[in-house]
Design a protein around this nucleic acid. Sequence first.
RNA 1: GGUGGCGUCGCCAAGUGGUAAGGCCAGAGUCUGCAAAACUCUCAUUCGUCGGUUCGAUUCCGACCGCCACCUCCA
Length: 481
Amino acid sequence: MGLKIYNSLSRQLEEFSPLKEGHVSMYSCGPTVYDYIHIGNARTALVTDIIRRYLTYKEYTVKLVQNLTDIDDKIIDRAHTLGLSAHELAHTNGLAYFEDTQRLGIQAADIHPKATEHIPEMIDLIQILLDKGAAYVVDGSVYYRVNAFSEYGKLSHRKPEDLLAGARVEVDERKEDPRDFDMWKAAKPGEPYWESPWGHGRPGWHIECSSMAMKHLGETIDIHAGGEDLLFPHHENEIAQSELATGVPFARYWVHVAFLKIDGKRMGKSEKNFILLREALDKYPAEVIRHFLVSAHYRHPLDYSIESLQTSESALRRLNNCLDTLKKFTTDIDESIDTQDDLTTDDNSLVSAIDTMQSGFIRAMDTDFNTAQAVGSIFTLVSTVNKSIAKNNGISNHIYTHAYNALIETCEVLGIYSTNEQDTGKTDEYLDPVLNLLLDIRQDARNRKDWDTSDMIRDRLKELNIEIQDTKEGSTWKFIS
RNA sequence: GGUGGCGUCGCCAAGUGGUAAGGCCAGAGUCUGCAAAACUCUCAUUCGUCGGUUCGAUUCCGACCGCCACCUCCA
């Protein structure tokens, strides 16, 4: 029936219903811009993008906010090594982030707030928490008093004892409780800082998301997304800060994206086992990378490998071949197909296959955005269409048009089909006539059974990465990689 | 130690208390002068192991084995 989302808060699949009917507010934790993003980061960004596209497909009005953390320890450190200001580094990498994600076909969020542009809002929120006795100041830093929030741990389902038992909690003598975390960090000499009631300093990581989400989306947001590593402590802390300040739920559905792995291990910046998104994009089209990322459900780990990308490339070729073939039958006439009496048995079975694909796609996406299953529905229809075309059973063009449109529509939700005409062909104005000349010469040779000449043309072009395809309709060519 | 997840065809990956989607690879075929490309067909009586519940379990329960992740900055 309707959309169901797995909510990390309840650890259950829940019926989705937004706070305001027809509208969805969504916040996604964005990157800390001290470096380029890797494919693992891209996975989360892509899942966010697809959730948004699907909600839009379901006719919701979606407002998506994704932050950019543009000040933190890593940025300061990296800027220092590079001899740049923290601002310069963050600015450059912020632009690179947009460039990379846009190349992946990720649509920009409605708002991309930056931490450094929301200092006053964060100070206000910290002040509220101080006034409520939920925070304390030590040497110019402000800490959140975890004990003040009785529901602390409700997202990560951790009990205070569990947290304390883990000997990995950093010991900081200045904290009242090891679980307490900083909302405002006093600046050390030479570090960038902002003025605050507690002295020169900078915001802690968690406070920015609380402030910016509430500023741009209100005190309660519908969907909050992020990588699964953010569940604790980041999201737990966001909840603690926000809910203690407002007294209302911070986010209604918590969505956590599983890790992208490489060689069976989590791809992470600290492990240095990552592949930069831009490197991958230099080697593979965006649709191929998207297909790969979408080939597993977002809550299940996915292992990155060249082989997987090649698999996706082959699968996508099958899809695109089908689409290209269908396109030849496409008619502009938008005939309705409800006149059942005019339809043959073959017509009807294709129409029903299209319906099956669409309902399967929706059922899959409605079940916690099961993109893997959704892709399955698409490929099942691809098979049916291919069979139908192979049988040459005289299916009406408008039914093929219907199939084409249905496939395009669903593929666009996943972003695995690019509507812009093959970009490889954009320089062909000059090449086209030349190739056609060669093709003509070859055809003449073939007519004379001069196989040496025709094969030489074919082979030499292949060396130039141009492949000749002989079909019943004649010869065509295309670039191969 | 605490918490969560995973183990399904050679590889990737969905899924369900009633008998296993899809993709890749592979084999066969159609097409072709031969190829390539494309398309078609074939391709898991079986779902980590052992028990239990059930008329029936891959799906529920328990134990065990193996793997991963979070508890510390990382999407």
